[in-house]
Amino acid sequence: MGKNLRLKAARAAKDMSQKELAEITKVTRQTINAIENGDFNPSIRLCRSICKALNKTLDEIFWEDEADVE
């Protein structure tokens, strides 16, 4: 699992810090950081919560296509 640059970009586009996203989704900032760095595979519930907070679909943030696989 590589870095989740789409999550980072979507968060930045909303001018939202990792801490702010973490508070909205009820996880720690370290969890958001780990997801962005590809060090943590979030539950589907957390994925949905993140997408709702960023107004994105699961596919837009978490779908890996062939180009994303290292």
Rank of each mutant, 00 (worst) to 15 (best):
G38P: 01
N4G: 01
F62P: 06
N41G: 02
N55P: 05
L54Y: 02
L5W: 05
S43K: 02
C51V: 00
A13Y: 11
L54W: 04
Q18S: 14
I32Y: 02
L58D: 11
L58S: 08
W63N: 03
E60V: 03
C51R: 01
L54N: 00
E64R: 06
W63I: 00
K3H: 02
G38K: 00
I44Q: 13
R45D: 12
D59K: 08
L7M: 03
D59W: 10
T57K: 00
A12V: 15
R45Q: 10
N37M: 11
A34T: 06
S17C: 11
L7H: 01
N55W: 05
I44L: 12
A67E: 08
A34M: 08
I44E: 14
G2S: 11
A67V: 04
K19A: 14
M16A: 11
R29Q: 15
R29K: 15
T28R: 08
T31K: 09
R45M: 05
A53K: 01
R29Y: 13
M16Q: 12
L58A: 06
N4T: 00
D68T: 06
N41R: 05
F40Y: 15
K14V: 07
D68R: 05
F62K: 03
A12D: 15
K26Q: 14
E64Y: 09
Q18M: 15
A22L: 11
A10N: 11
A53P: 01
L58F: 14
E64A: 06
N37W: 04
N55A: 06
I61F: 07
T28E: 11
E23D: 15
S17T: 07
D68M: 06
V69F: 08
A13E: 15
L5D: 07
F40K: 08
R45T: 02
G2Q: 12
K56N: 03
L21M: 12
E36G: 01
I44S: 14
T31G: 05
S17V: 03
C51A: 02
S43M: 00
K26T: 01
K3C: 01
T28V: 05
E64Q: 08
A10M: 10
T31S: 12
A13L: 10
R11A: 02
I50W: 03
K52Y: 11
T31F: 07
M16N: 13
L5Y: 11
E60I: 04
E20K: 13
T31E: 09
K19M: 14
F40H: 09
K8P: 13
R45F: 07
R11L: 02
F62S: 03
E20D: 13
K26G: 06
N37C: 13
L7R: 00
F40L: 08
V69A: 03
M16S: 14
I44P: 11
T25V: 04
N4E: 03
D39K: 04
R29S: 15
R11H: 05
T25F: 03
K3W: 00
L21R: 06
W63H: 08
K19R: 15
R29H: 13
A9V: 07
R6L: 05
F40R: 07
T31A: 10
V27M: 09
L58R: 11
T57R: 00
R6I: 02
A22P: 15
Q18A: 12
R48F: 06
A67G: 03
D68C: 04
I35A: 08
T57P: 01
I24L: 14
E23W: 07
